[in-house]
Design a protein around this nucleic acid. Sequence first.
DNA 1: CGGCCAATAATCCATTTGGATAAGAAGGTA
DNA 2: TACCTTCTTATCCAAATGGATTATTGGCCG
Lengths: 225, 225
Amino acid sequence: MLVNIAIVDDKASNRSIIKDKLLRHKIFEVSLIAENGKDFLDKMKVLPPDKVPSVVLMDLEMPEMDGVDAVAAGSYLYPTVKFVMLTIFDDEEKIFKAIKAGAFGYLLKDESAENIAETLEQMHENGVGPISPGIAHKILQLVQNNTVSLIQKHIPEKDKTPFNLTEREQEILKLLVQGLQYKEIGSRLQISPNTAKKHVLNIYSKLHVNSKTQALALAYEKGLI
Amino acid sequence: MLVNIAIVDDKASNRSIIKDKLLRHKIFEVSLIAENGKDFLDKMKVLPPDKVPSVVLMDLEMPEMDGVDAVAAGSYLYPTVKFVMLTIFDDEEKIFKAIKAGAFGYLLKDESAENIAETLEQMHENGVGPISPGIAHKILQLVQNNTVSLIQKHIPEKDKTPFNLTEREQEILKLLVQGLQYKEIGSRLQISPNTAKKHVLNIYSKLHVNSKTQALALAYEKGLI
DNA sequence: CGGCCAATAATCCATTTGGATAAGAAGGTA
DNA sequence: TACCTTCTTATCCAAATGGATTATTGGCCG
């Protein structure tokens, strides 16, 4: 039986190289190609069930929506899909965040370009998430150096708002997760309930969800709060 | 130049198998053999400086003093020595503890018995701690499941149902926090959406809330999930 | 046996929410 | 200035939710 794979990368050359590698193995079918996280989620929504990928190869660095956010939303919306990140070596923070967000495996771009198909085949056989040795070593060190301190340490560097939420939207999200309804949010922030609602709906579209409960689930699971 | 290796294992057969594998590569010298953690530390004390191993292959399960304690003490006493653990697959807690204690690498016993020497050679070249894919995958999951929770999880071992929720209600609560709506809950559990709704409303009254979002907020805050 | 509770299911109705769409005001930027 | 984004507000409509109530079934307990 064919195994559906999705490729998400902003560089066209990468996409075609990976695709070529995969298609050389007859068990793989590339059923979705996207050029960033948002594009991927959008395309997933309209994908026929038999095309839903079992594995998503996702670049970490992408415009519009990066791999971290995409894996966070994606692993919530499609729990059965396995996300394997493709990355360069030195982005420690993103590596860590993507793991927390639900990445299933982690491959170094250069290291695995050659044998990416073989790696996926192995993964398909034994169900173990593929991890490049270098990354594994890094993860081990992260755990050794007590994980938690590392999470904190990196926060002050950059505070890119997750999912490109605006400040106002984050403010609203905070109230949302407290279980408030539009009216209440409105009066807390001294704005019309209609406005509150508008903000909430905007948040939905950024998170690619469509209800309060889904937004809460995602926010809690991925630690947006 | 020769690379000194130490082997620590309580089974004589393992010791000799590993030793044989290593000696086939002429760059390796086995300068210390011990049968448990205590034995290893004792022998390290009286070892001439030129025999001090660069790498210690250490079994996890051993009598007298196990691999965890040995690596904890050893990595403190001999910071330059690299400890590579040899283990069976399922001892999650020990795997984790050994990492925290300072293990440099982690190999599955069976998986690596064949190519242990090659693995060490690679490690010697690129300085990256060797980790079997299965272990790497497990570590990744540990990080995903928030590391810290595993450390503490073992202390409180109570399973009193919170808020007097019935089993069915807890089942429903679990689906609720995933962001499902009545219809979806109903079809998941093979019951009518009306019944699902009824259960949810019953949950509300037990939790003293009156909306899904409030229920979620409470469930997450109090860790009912 | 009678009573109690959990689980199941349904109905009615008011409120809330989600989705689409439009549009004005304030701010920054090319 | 023209343009873009964010924040603001609004309206219409369909769908989902919350609240109240009633009813049947099957276990369990005294």
